[in-house]
């Protein structure tokens, strides 16, 4: 039996995400375990990274946080709302962006943003769209079909969609995948500024270690669905006796331990 977590009541003091013993097993009792007893608490206003190789459980974790996938066991609460019982109230205050989920290509950027303004019941939707367009340099793109945009432009539109409801919690799955270094840097700078100004909590899944080191105050390293290590990027680099987070990632992904002489967590 997994430990029972008290049902949290929605409250401003509640963390952005509270995960306890979260487990996902596909295909019944003897099926493959994608996430195995994940426990963590993301504080309000913090940016955390979720790192791991392909199949480590990042996407499965994000899907469970979004209510898209039902955990086999364990519990998850976002912004104080239990996702098993009260996910729609949480979803109204969260948002999500991934390059692997598209926006309707034939609709213009403005139409796409209008759709999501309605779905998230955004007050003064046109003013919100105009403000986001100004902030993300989308003004000249508003009347263009989403399918005609470049990868960088699509990323900015996806960010505008993810921010349409001024979320308190933002889940980002590889936000700068397939972007050139200049555009990637622009997005990272923008996210840093947005988080500082809005106080929004961000959970970022990425394969770009430099991005994670720059944006995240804390990193969860996943392997085979488990958290195998965690800490600030600087602490992890020091603990593994490496020069950067990419080398730490390789150590963990390949099952190598902490370097001799370095102190464990």
């Amino acid at each position: 039996m997994p430990p029972i977590m008290p049902v949290p009541t929605p409250d401003a003091d509640e963390p952005a995400i509270r995960c306890e013993a979260l487990t996902k097993r596909y295909g019944g009792r003897d099926g493959a375990v994608a996430v195995d007893g994940l426990t963590f608490t993301l504080p309000r206003g913090a940016t955390w990274g979720l790192l791991g190789g392909n199949g480590a459980g990042k996407t499965t974790t994000i899907a469970m946080l979004l209510g898209l996938l039902v955990p086999t066991s364990g519990r998850v609460a976002c912004l104080g709302h239990d996702m098993a019982r009260d996910r729609f109230r949480a979803l109204a205050r969260m948002n999500f962006s991934s390059p692997y989920i598209a926006l309707p290509q034939r609709l213009t950027v403005a139409e796409n943003l209008r759709v999501y303004a309605h779905l998230y019941d955004v007050k003064r939707a046109e003013a919100r769209i105009a403000a986001l367009a100004a902030d993300l340099q989308l003004e000249d793109l508003l009347q263009r079909p989403a399918g005609e945009l470049s990868a960088g432009q699509k990323t900015r539109v996806a960010l505008a969609k993810a921010l349409i409801n001024t979320p308190d919690l933002l889940l980002l799955d590889e936000p700068t995948a397939s972007l050139d270094p200049d555009t990637g840097d622009w997005v990272r700078t923008w996210l840093e500024r947005y988080r500082a100004e809005s106080g929004c909590a961000i959970l970022l899944a990425s394969h770009n270690m430099a991005e994670v080191a720059r944006l995240c105050g804390h990193v969860l390293m996943l392997r085979k669905g488990r958290v195998v290590d965690e800490g600030s990027p600087a602490a992890l680099i020091e603990r593994y006796g490496r020069e950067d987070l990419e080398q730490v990632f390789l150590d963990i992904a390949r099952g190598r331990g902490i370097a001799a002489g370095a102190s464990p967590a």
């Binding site: 109230r89 979803l91 989920i101 779905l119 998230y120 969609k161």
Partner: peptide
């Protein structure tokens, strides 16, 4: 077909 279903299902629409 437009790969938009994920966005719909993670929005607050019941």
């Amino acid at each position: 077909w437009s790969r938009n279903l994920g966005h719909i299902f993670v929005s607050p629409i019941r």
